[in-house]
Structures are given as structure tokens and as C-alpha cells.
Design a protein around this nucleic acid. Structure first.
Lengths: 250, 250
DNA sequence: CATTATCCATAACCTATGTTAAGTGAGCGC
DNA sequence: GCGCTCACTTAACATAGGTTATGGATAATG
């Protein structure tokens, strides 16, 4: 029962929180264990997201390949860890995953996970929202790790731009951003002075016009190109991933 | 119906995925809106984690205060965002949260969220696992943002140490770590050369002994002090947070 | 209107970390 | 045993970004 070997589950089980039904359900969930060899890829970025795995033996990791040829590792997975719930709520993988050394994993389908949430698509929605937040966090981590200040800031502004656009708070490529440069610095891990420098840089390149809280991106697409913005993680119409599942489970 | 104003929920609703029961449940969930003024704190790190909020108006942010006096912002929250599900599954807050400007928020209790998951503490377990992953991610982000290389590496090693200890893979303060310095560099956003330099530094200080994959931490507590490791996010016996809830909802 | 506090821009200087390169030792195939 | 390759170490040099400081807007306050 691989899922039971998960740290949290083991805790729940010890406390008697898992009902007999729960345990029966877990057994039902179980697919075949899969033996993996070192460096074997579990899935690639943009691949179909339809399952997650419990790592039984060996180490794995998830990572994003970057435009400059390097990669940013998001997380190492040790035995007992669950790999791949990150993408629950998305149709495609946001990051690749691979093994480091030989190991054994137990795959579970999202479909099964979905059934687990029972009748409430509300619960699914909450879960999806949480995963979407995590996606934003991961993306920021990637930029913190490997990109230069002007790329980070461009990425940050573009993200805000997209998120505001979703809720109709962008007009004529302009929006209100009630942040001081100090706050932005605290978010991007850079000194306020350098935030200012970097804003000046972007201004000179005609990418960002800013007057206090008023921000205008004259050419959002240019910004997006600069940072190779992968908007699937923010713009994807999440629930579509569920509508299929909903159809499958009447 | 603030929760319905959430991006994901709106999507679900549009697609007719929400049943009448779901919607009734949502209505029931609703507490009173709360008017917040600029800079007002929603909660502090280590405070009790018992609710989350939907931001209706204004901007908010979550952040961690760092030992060096600065802070790392984890996320900005815009209208329609949910703030505070991050801590679902923990008893205490892992990060503080505050408003940036004036606004309105709708609080919801974790208790209600818990009921939403219905009879399945399995679902709760999955959710908690996901949140725990996010906590690790946040912690890494904090270190990427504001700490020097040797602090980052020390933190990384201590995290691995704790995680391996949980699953009984540490003996006599030693463990097997099948990572190259290049992989570690890809995780910490630093060049492999600097990983080597930094390992040398930690070795000279007697904090880390390493021979290829064999790692020994002669004095784990010293490492923990060096990085002010907040182990609540990794070591907390998560399900205890639920046992109360379970008792409350027979 | 005067005063003060914020926020921001720019400059000069300093340091941590990236880059490139060369050398060492362990493992492994031949 | 010989010559690979791979992982690591150390050194010399380059640079992005931190730090400190100063001045100038703009907004808040009396």
C-alpha cells in the first residue's frame, strides 16, 4: 500500500483517522509498482498530466529546463514522497520529473484522486486553487534561481499584468500597482536600489512606463518574449481539466 | 458569495460543475466580510492557523521575516485570490500576511473547508501533503531570495537530513545523498564551482563531512542554528491538526 | 502654506558569486 | 596496467548586484 507509506497518510493511519472504507479505497487505487532506472524520465514539461506517483525507493526530482540551457530543480523527492500532485488541476505538466538513481514508484491516476474527493467539485476547486498558487510559487523560484534582475522584474510585471487582466483590472495595457519598490525588492530578493536601476533599464528600452502606482506596458508581448513567459500555468482555463473528469464520473 | 468570485470557482460555476448543493453549501460557508485598512495584518507567523480568506478588494501579501531584519515576500494577493490555504494541515501559520492598501476580505474557517472534503480524511491527507510540499517550496524560495551561499547549502543539507531522518534513513548523523554538486547547484541556483567552494567552507568549519555520496553532519544542531531552521513546517506532526477537526465532525 | 516623511533616481564603491581554466583522484573499460 | 571519463577542487579574473549616500520629487500633516 504505497500511498499509506506517505508520511501524512501514515500519520493519519496511526491516529485511526482512516476508516475501513478509506483503507479499502486505498487498496483499490493501487496500480502496479514500476521499477525505474537511474536518470529515467517520469514525464516531461508539457506532457499530459494524468497521474501522480508515490516514490517507494530511490530519489527523484522535478525540474524546469531554462532558455539559457541550464535547469532549475524545484524539488528532490525521497522515498515516501508524492511526486506530481503539483499538476493536479492542469492538463499539462508544468515541470519535468526524473529519477536520480534506480528506484521503485507507484503510480496513481488523477482520475482516482478525483473520485476520492467524492461528490464535491468544490473541494476539487479548492485543491486546484492551491495547486495554482504553487505553480506561481514555482515559477518565481525558477526566476529567483537563474535569471538576471531585469528578467526577473519583467517576469514579475508580466505576471501581475496577466493576473490583473483576468479580473478585468487592465485597461489600455495600463493598471494600478500599489507596490513600493521596496516591496517589489522584498518579493524578488533584490535591493530596492537595484529595483530602481532595473526599472530605469526597462523604461529606457521602452518596455515599461511607470509613474508611481500607474504602470503601463506599451508592448506586453515584447515583455512576454523577453522572459519566455509560459502562461499555461496562469492562463490555462483550469476547470476544463475537470470537466472531462466530471463527465467520466457521473 | 465571495468564494464564487475566486477564479477557479467562477470557472467551475460557468461550466455548471457546481451542483445546487455545492452552491447552497457555499452560501452557508459565508461569514461576514471584513474591511481592512492599509498595512493591517491578517495574521502573524506562528499564529494559529484556523482560517483562510478570499480577497474581495485591495492587495495583500504573505511574507516571512528573516533573521537579518529584512523580509521575503512569498506572494502578492489580488482581488479574487485565496489567501491562507497554504497553512491548511498545519496548526500554526508558516508565514505572516497583511494588506497593502485598503480592502475587503471574506474569511472562511478551515473547519468549514474540512467539512467540504466530506467523509474522506484521505482527501484531506492528500491536500495536506500538497500543502506540505508547498511549504518546502516556500522555504527554499526564502533562502534563494535572501541568503548567502553557505546558508543556503547548510539549510539544504539540514532539510535533507530531517526528511531522511523521518523515514529512518539516517544513522549516526550520516546518510546517503545520491546527488552531484551540479544537481545541488541546479537546485540552489548556484554554479557547481561555487557549490564546491561552499562545501569546502562548511567542511573547514567542521559542519559537514562528505565523501562522494556519504554525508555526515557531526553536529546537526549547530547547522540548524546557523540557518535558524524553522522545522515546524517539516517536522510538525501534521495530522494532529486534523484530529481536532475529526473530533469536531463525527 | 510650510514642514515633514515617503518614495524614487543616480552615483561611487565594494563583495559575493559567476566564469574559465587547469589539475587531481576515483572508477571503469580495454 | 593504461587511458578514459567523470566528479570534484582550487585559483585567477570578471561582473551583477549590494551598500551607502545624496538630492529631488510628491504626497501627507499641521
Amino acid at each position: 500500500m504505497a500511498l499509506l507509506d506517505t508520511v501524512v497518510m501514515r500519520g493519519l493511519s496511526n491516529q485511526g483517522a482512516l476508516s475501513t472504507e478509506d483503507k479499502a479505497f486505498l487498496l483499490e487505487l493501487e496500480l502496479n509498482p514500476r521499477h525505474m532506472s537511474a536518470s529515467e524520465v517520469l514525464w516531461l514539461e508539457n506532457g499530459q498530466a494524468d497521474l501522480f506517483c508515490v516514490v517507494k525507493e530511490g530519489w527523484g526530482y522535478s525540474y524546469r529546463n531554462l532558455k539559457n540551457g541550464s535547469k532549475q530543480i524545484l524539488k528532490f523527492y525521497l522515498p515516501g514522497d508524492i511526486i506530481g500532485i503539483r499538476d493536479f488541476g492542469f492538463t499539462r505538466r508544468l515541470a519535468s520529473a526524473a529519477m536520480i538513481n534506480d528506484g521503485v514508484i507507484y503510480p496513481f491516476s488523477y482520475q482516482q484522486l478525483f473520485e476520492l474527493f467524492g461528490r464535491s467539485s468544490l473541494a476539487v476547486g479548492i485543491m486546484a486553487t492551491a495547486m495554482r498558487q504553487q505553480a506561481l510559487l514555482s515559477e518565481r523560484l525558477v526566476y529567483l534561481g537563474k535569471y538576471a534582475a531585469h528578467e526577473q522584474l519583467a517576469h514579475f510585471l508580466y505576471e501581475i499584468y496577466l493576473r490583473l487582466k483576468r479580473i478585468g483590472a487592465v485597461e489600455d495595457n495600463s493598471f494600478l500597482m500599489p507596490l513600493t519598490q521596496e516591496l517589489i525588492g522584498d518579493a524578488l530578493g533584490m535591493s530596492p536600489v537595484h529595483v530602481s536601476r532595473t526599472f530605469s533599464m526597462l523604461r529606457e528600452e521602452g518596455l515599461v512606463i511607470r509613474d508611481r502606482q500607474h504602470v503601463k506596458l506599451p508592448d506586453p508581448e515584447a515583455l512576454a518574449r523577453l522572459v519566455e513567459f509560459n502562461d499555461s500555468y496562469i492562463d490555462e482555463f483550469l476547470p476544463s481539466a475537470f470537466s472531462e473528469l466530471l463527465r467520466a464520473t457521473p
